[in-house]
Write a protein that binds this DNA or RNA. Structure first.
Lengths: 420, 420
DNA sequence: TTACTTATGTATAGAAATATACAAAATGAT
DNA sequence: ATCATTTTGTATATTTCTATACATAAGTAA
């Protein structure tokens, strides 16, 4: 009865979201793990899993796990099953990428732009860039899982909007998700770049940490926080704004935010560059500072050390308040290594209570470019593979299949073959 | 077929945890809401709900909700279905209570004790006190939902142990849950008192807030934080330790923790009492300070105002880091009202970025004694009524019924009556 | 090779949940 | 009083899931 078969297959597929999510999030990598974690019966798991495999969403990996008996077959999301589109909006350029679910870059492009262009034109430019990436890459692989945008501003994540005045002039409270959904009809996520860097460091390098503080020390200073495995965003998406915590002192420098004595004005890339310029060096931003440090210029090294202690002071406060188990220091100035880190460590261990610091690890982020972009990809994939996201995804696939009566997927025959 | 009926009833009851949890947490108060929220069919919801009503766990409230048609019947947990036992361990006394699920006190007692007695003897003393409360109250109502302990020390909530050196000398890393479970065979929860005060303020007075910061200003200073509706506890349960954040200054006072310039040493009840004594007043703790403030003693008022500004300084940092939407100030010194609050407000709005403070509300906690004790009851009830807790609870009820073949509950007849 | 172990698939009967349809109840509005 | 409206209960046939049992697969260790 081929008709009934394909009907039950389709329902098995849309009901397979729990199975899919367990595999995709790595919570269960084998059939037996699926049985345990899902609480479903062996028959049901087998049936749903077969539907996922027939639809080419899940595949058996080549490797197996030793078990003492028959080796466990490892299940994984088919990396050609889907892709994501991400954009990192900087101050002077847009960095776009088509990514696989790992996430890894399939294709990318960089576009010039200025904040002055405003949100509508910029979002159109991004949509155009996305379409070009897709067509250049032959349409990508499989289904478009979702779209992500990284912005250098506070973002109300739930509403997907920039909140408050920021570098992104003209974007305050502008709807970003709406236009992008209209263009592509897939889930769209928007977040602050530091949050996304934090997410990527966590998921890629420190997945075992439950709580993690990420400190970005670049031209500006910001922090992101992972609590209980999730990004902590605060009430209005403005959490982690440690750059503008003030310290009193006689010579408190003026910050670009207009206040006196902010951490940024004492320790950010722009502040160090400012101080180096007064000493006759040529330096405009964090990259110039690091270049001087790498040339072993004593003044630059001294200032980086001093910046470390300033950041350490505020980090000690953060440690008292949040009690993280791990602190990861990234951003351009983190390339300065121990010159930056030693000062942070010094102040944190000096000021923190023994309890909060006795099992605290402070490390440098492994050097890697474009962390925010990868983090954006990770965010989209995490959402697509979450239980709720998986439901939506499989519904999307099912309705797409219903519209094109040529078959459920590119592999209609294969599913027939399996169904027998 | 009465035999089959009662068997299917029993299975309907243990499967009813999802329904129970929805009602108990207030997520669904009517049958139609249950249908929507659970995603189950009408028949299934009706069957499970009947099992819960037959077991006297859920009842129909007298009031109904207008709907335009037939009024909606309101469902609620039968307040006589269960009770909790809670203990607040202070520095010189144990405060025990038997509570209903609201939570409201059914019976209570206060026992003298000293920290020097050590954990084993203290836990025995608590268990004895609990048993006396139970027998005095005629065994409480219904099933014992769980037990909760509030401690004036950092607690690793997941492990249920005090972590690090603290006022609770001798308790570091001692198993608390094990002995109590052995005594009573029910779930046991242990948490820090400030966290529990935070939980109660949130659930009772500000349930609509997603993110909330609670600052306790008493003899000591501490903070608790609600993130996304849950207590945020940090990696080792030491989050919220704002009392020992340091500010540099020429005259930095010595803190009882051994460091210089801590917030506590400048603004806590013990520090104000210390300063009042040097001026010839008699004051030992926060209560004495408030007594002087209420007598309009100018020096006391001045010092409370100053303390407010110190707390405001550290609160401004917390706001930058966490970006809460609501700050609630409680503890003994909060009875000082605006004398304390104005300084906090002043510094927070002065130092915080516009974005973080533009929708920030800072309020006093409504005066109420024993908030920590109520918070402990709330914690136990919240856990018992959570989806996972409801599963365990109903299993416990089912196995208790299986052991006593006289009936599922005290109301066997009634369930028969309903079954027909 | 053979025995042992764990992983995995499937047939069958039975249990549980659903969809659908209808009926009855309880209120306000006309 | 009658009607419209919403809530709530239940009977029926059907679908879906489970439990149980058995069979087979694919390694390791003797």
């Amino acid at each position: 009865m081929p008709i009934k078969d394909s009907a039950s297959d389709a329902s098995a597929l849309t009901n397979a979201s729990d199975i899919f999510s367990l595999i995709a999030t790595g919570e269960a990598v084998s059939r037996s793990a699926l049985l345990e974690r899902s609480g479903l019966s062996r028959v049901t798991v087998t049936q749903r899993l077969n539907a996922l495999i027939a639809a080419d969403l899940i595949e058996e990996a080549a490797r197996t796990l030793p078990s003492g008996g028959r080796p466990t077959r490892v299940l994984a999301v088919n990396r050609r099953a889907g892709h994501v589109l991400v954009a990192n909006i900087g101050e002077a350029h847009l960095h776009l990428a088509l990514m696989s679910p790992e996430p890894a870059v399939i294709a990318q492009s960089t576009l010039r732009y200025e904040v002055a262009e405003g949100p509508a034109a910029t979002l159109d430019k991004i949509a155009d860039g996305f379409r070009r990436l897709l067509s250049d890459a032959g349409g990508g692989n499989g289904i478009l899982l979702g779209i992500g945008l990284s912005l250098p501003a506070p973002v109300d994540y739930k509403r997907g909007r920039v909140v408050g005045p920021s570098i992104m002039r003209g974007w305050d409270d502008v709807d970003i998700i709406g236009p992008m959904v209209e263009h592509f009809g897939v889930p769209v996520y928007v977040d602050n770049d530091v949050n996304l860097m934090t997410l990527y460091e966590y998921r890629r390098h420190f997945p075992q940490a439950d709580d993690m503080l990420f400190i970005k020390v670049g031209t500006g200073i910001g922090a992101g926080f992972i609590a209980d495995g999730k990004i902590f965003r605060g009430a209005h998406g403005a959490s982690g704004d440690i750059g503008h915590i003030q310290f009193d002192s006689a010579d408190a420098p003026l910050c670009r935010c207009g206040k006196l004595g902010c951490v940024e004005a004492r320790a950010a890339g722009w502040a160090i560059a400012r101080d180096l310029r007064t000493r006759g060096f040529k330096a405009d931003n964090a990259r110039d500072v690091i270049a001087l440090v790498e040339q072993q210029v004593p003044e630059a090294i001294m200032m980086l050390r001093k910046a470390g202690r300033v950041i350490g002071e505020v980090t000690a406060d953060v440690v008292s308040i949040l009690n993280p188990g791990l602190i990861v220091v990234g951003g351009t100035l983190a390339r300065g290594g121990d010159f930056l880190l030693s000062g942070i460590r010094e102040l944190v261990y000096q000021r923190g209570l023994p309890l909060a610091t006795r099992e605290l690890t402070i490390v440098l982020a492994p050097p890697q470019a474009d962390i925010a972009l990868f983090g954006t990809g990770q965010l989209v994939v995490d959402n697509a593979f979450s239980p709720a996201g998986a439901v939506a995804l499989l519904n999307r696939i099912a309705s797409a299949a219903a519209r094109s009566p040529t078959g459920r997927s590119a592999n209609g025959e294969r599913s027939m073959e399996r169904a027998d």
